[in-house]
Write a protein that binds this DNA or RNA. Structure first.
Lengths: 117, 117
DNA sequence: CCGATGTGCAACTATCAGATTGCACTAAAT
DNA sequence: ATTTAGTGCAATCTGATAGTTGCACATCGG
């Protein structure tokens, strides 16, 4: 299994980078709680400028975690679960793979050292 | 639901930061494939210096994703699935929560605009 | 029309992470 | 004992990124 090449790898990469920042996670929490919000409203709830929020939203958008739609003069952002779900599945698969490998290694080691038991 | 406070949040944060870097993901792939490896041997397989590898391994170690044990003059690193699994579950729960909220919002919106039916 | 509100764009700063190099120290091997 | 291989520590460089401010542009309400 190789996780860097092919298919959903780029998607996962973007999600991981996006989620690595605490401010962006807070942003996602606020968005999920309110269902919808604009950069200006979100900036009122966080200790950073509106422009900082805009940049974070751009990163989240590029990662597929949020989407924004224009309504008149404001842009309303919403959360998108799909990319997050894909990343969660990727991680779960990776953890399962590690478990499998470690189990195999353990079996081999026990077979090679029968003096233990 | 708040994801920043309490319990496994710090664990998840460390894992996300650790996995956000592509070199570290490669490192984890190599470690998972070989079962065990030292910083020196890993540096031979990646286009970065041993010291860079050492720093990455320190980050991964702090995140609970790998662990190293000294054997004579060398330090052998192994992968640890637990923290990764915890992060995967956190993400899956978050995605499910978003789905739930979006479904609720959709229901409310449909109830408020019956002229569509 | 005109003021108020919300966005978008650009320049700039500063901090931090990834990476390098050099050297000292420890442990194995001959 | 001397050489060789593996680690650890420290200083340094560089690029990316989080954050800021200022201003121009669009839009809604009176």
């Amino acid at each position: 299994m190789t996780y860097e090449r092919g298919g959903a790898a780029e998607t996962v990469d973007g999600v991981l980078v996006a989620l690595a920042d605490p401010t962006r996670r807070q942003l996602l929490d606020l968005l999920a709680a309110q269902g919808m919000a604009t950069a200006t409203t979100l900036a009122e709830r966080l200790p950073v400028s509106r422009q900082a929020i805009v940049k974070h939203l751009a990163v989240l958008d590029a990662a597929g975690l949020v989407t924004g739609s224009r309504v008149g003069r404001e842009v309303r952002y919403t959360v998108r679960p799909a990319a997050l779900d894909a990343a969660a599945r990727w991680m779960a698969a990776l953890a399962a793979d590690w478990d499998r490998r470690l189990a195999t290694i353990k079996r081999v080691a026990e077979a090679a050292e029968p003096e233990q038991g």
